[in-house]
């Protein structure tokens, strides 16, 4: 690699202002309004951890979207498998699980980000038992409906 590939892109003035910002405990002036309000306390964590937290959030959101698509698909495709009221119940349950997971994903992202800023241990993942429970219930309902039908 030729000397420093980064010096040309991160301008010296930009880097200087970042250093000043990171040394200022009262909060960097360059931060956005929302992050200043929601992530007020503590110091900027390792950027790798911030990005890893963002990817974990996105993985949960994709899980939520999969539940949402599943609920929509049950209502659209499974008319032959489930009679009408049961199909609606399964569909609404599945979409609701997706809703809970997406809200939980955002809350967990925020809590993890706050813990990292304060150097505290990361919080317990409450959405993992929720996901296990919801998947179990959904499968039990489907099995019961198929067997009883």
């Amino acid at each position: 690699m030729s000397d420093d590939p980064l010096s040309g892109d991160v301008g010296s003035g930009d880097r200087a202002s970042r250093d000043v910002a990171s040394e200022d405990p009262s909060g960097a002036p360059t931060r956005g309004r929302l992050s200043s309000r929601l992530l007020a306390r503590g110091q900027e964590p390792d950027p790798r951890f911030t990005l890893a937290n963002e990817r974990t959030f996105l993985a949960w959101i994709r899980t939520a979207l999969a539940f949402l698509a599943g609920g929509v698909a049950v209502e659209a495709f499974a008319a032959d498998v489930f009679a009408d009221p049961y199909r609606t119940v399964v569909s609404v349950l599945t979409i609701s699980v997706g809703l809970l997971i997406s809200v939980g994903a955002a809350m967990r992202w925020l809590n993890v980000e706050r813990s990292m800023r304060l150097g505290q241990p990361l919080p317990m993942p409450l959405i993992i038992p929720l996901l296990s429970f919801a998947s179990g219930v959904a499968m039990a309902v489907v099995i019961a409906l198929v067997v009883l039908d």
Binding site: D9, P47, A105
Partner: peptide, 21 residues
Amino acid sequence: IAAEQVEADVPAVLATTVATV
């Protein structure tokens, strides 16, 4: 990453959550 400081992308996370909900 090059400057060792990435601001958490609160607007993107909130917007994605709101859209999903």
